[in-house]
Design a protein around this nucleic acid. Structure first.
Lengths: 338, 338
DNA sequence: ATTCTATCCCAAAACGTTTTGGGGGTCAAG
DNA sequence: CTTGACCCCCAAAACGTTTTGGGATAGAAT
């Protein structure tokens, strides 16, 4: 078995109270004793039992995040970067990061949140892939459980969040495409109850309207934020009697799939057929051809979220509850090539 | 505060023992009572406190994994897929997944393992990016703590692992390159104490030897498994008075960086300058140009690891401790293009 | 009438911490 | 000599479970 605080206390002929308080840095234990305790504890390889500590302290020093993995080969690099950001900032605040995978909306997801919050397995959670009306937001807000979100839902709850103005920046992509002369611009989106879909589609429509282009429902398709989804939707668009000259995708992964089908069909992507993404995943500047996209600082956003969550858990007042992040329009060959 | 087992017991005029045992499915409680208990517990929204349960049961139902994030913008999609695999299989066995980020070899990494194992925060851990002699393997083996690894170290410990024969398959890449007529083949590797580096470099040398090509130390560089590292090494190689006609990279991310610099230098990658990777990350078939690589089933490998870890934790005998995975040579335009 | 078995239940201990509420010394001031 | 103020320290309670080791009742067998 492991070394416990009792073993340390016995070795030093001290009470466990004193050992505990020495290590925790209370000032009602002499410097001499404290030094001795810490020294001995270290020598004996004592590490506090986390479960006991959690039980007593009523906190777990852990934050939770559920990866929206809805398919087996889930390799969206967005999440590698996002998790790295969460993890780094978490450990900076002395938190561990608990990750679960569950298809969005599944009962597995429900159960995980219930176990985590009611069972006090985590002190707070990070949400993303927010829906317009999101049960998680409502559930956590009602339970008064600390949480933060990437993108805001429309629920009228008060909670900290980080957001990119998807509507505004998607419109900038449209401006860019129109400035290149495109008139038939398609849109491949995501599930309509997703916040990013609503925002980005709105940006798409704003863009059309501003340049007096008609909204053509046959050019607006639903993907699923994967390259497969983009592939299928792209295929459909290229099969149209009068296909679009530009395809604006809701995210980079979707755009990835479009590039794939375009190449298979022998369509060189660039000026003639333009494709755009949204996310700016590091490493995706090497796609075929390099992808014009909106570049979000995913790592920073993740860290910012954890920062706010940590403050909330510590009941510190937040300097600002609603952080707006400025991305960058990255123009590459997929719209201006060849 | 949350609902505890006491509240449920009081409501039903039962002892907490009976409530506990009813829920846990012991047969010394009548069916009638069990039904009532489960019903009531559910109604009251009772969820067992995880800390208390862990403390008493002496296990956490959690497995740990430390993401080797050594740089801020860490977006290697390999790990998104790997984590998804770990998470899926873990929840299948009733485990949560605890993820931390720490630069390999850092003191933060040491501390995390110590806290997790001695503090019993996790029941087992998954390791990857294994080194030839890996302190983690030795540490965990000595502590008799359950763990599994992706790739084996040379330490003479007995532990379950999953591995791809990197030496054999890297040689196949060399065979492929030579068959295309390449004579000057460079290699961009990783830190020399990494197992994958040792294996893949050995495969590179095997390939050279088999085809009677001399080993030229000036064509063998060290990267860091990132696209930046690949970029720098590639730059160096292209600056040589007599640059190589093919560059074999230790992994896909490195190859990514090479593609980048090659394009910047106006070198069309394909027949004239060939580039290969290793990993077969889903989505990387869309690079510029599509990358010839060794495709590993990362998701499956992760699940297999967790499967073995779960068996080990449950002290079940493992059907096989050492699983060898067969990847696929994926030939694409980066070697046979244009 | 006693013993035995089966069935259902429970009180108390245990897990390893942290926190509460003091308790003895020593020393200086009254 | 008492009082108060410090300074160190500690016993015991508490956190919410699971596990241990029975205990009570009822019916069947002796």
């Amino acid at each position: 078995m492991s070394i416990t605080i009792k073993d340390v206390a016995r070795r030093l002929n001290l009470s466990i109270t004193t050992v505990s308080r020495a290590i925790d840095g209370y000032d009602d234990v002499s410097e001499e004793t404290r030094h001795l305790v810490i020294q001995t504890a270290h020598e004996m390889g004592y590490v506090p039992n986390q479960a006991a500590r959690q039980l007593r302290r009523k906190r777990s020093d852990t934050i939770g995040y559920i990866l929206p993995a809805d398919q087996p080969r889930f390799s969206d690099p967005f999440f590698a970067e996002f998790i790295a950001g969460l993890g780094d900032e978490a450990s900076m605040h002395g938190f561990d990061l608990l990750v679960s995978t569950a298809p969005p909306g599944s009962s597995a997801e429900h159960q995980a949140y219930e176990r985590w919050t009611h069972g006090r397995k985590v002190d707070g959670v990070v949400l993303n892939r927010i829906q317009l009306n999101d049960w998680r937001v409502q559930y956590l807000a009602r339970a008064q459980f600390p949480f933060v979100t990437l993108e805001r839902s429309l629920d009228s709850c008060d909670y900290p969040s980080v957001e990119v103005n998807g509507r505004l920046w998607f419109k900038k992509l449209l401006d860019h495409l129109v400035s290149l002369g495109h008139q038939r611009i398609a849109y491949i989106g995501a599930s309509p109850n997703l916040k990013i879909q609503a925002d980005r589609l709105a940006g798409y429509r704003d863009g059309l309207a501003q340049h007096n282009l008609a909204y053509d429902a046959s050019l607006v398709l639903e993907g699923d934020l994967t390259s497969e989804g983009g592939y299928r939707a792209g295929e459909h668009l290229l099969n149209l009697p009068k296909p679009p000259t530009a395809i604006a995708c809701v995210d980079d992964m979707t755009a990835m799939g479009v590039l794939h089908i375009a190449r298979q069909r022998g369509r060189t992507v660039g000026k003639e057929l333009a494709v755009t993404g949204f996310d700016g995943i590091a490493g995706f500047e090497h796609t075929q051809p390099p992808l014009t996209t909106i570049n979000q600082p995913v790592y920073q956003m993740a860290r910012c979220l954890v920062q706010m969550l940590a403050d909330q858990i510590a009941r510190k007042p937040l300097p600002e509850k609603y952080v707006q992040i400025e991305p960058v329009l990255e123009i590459r060959q997929s719209t201006v090539g060849e």
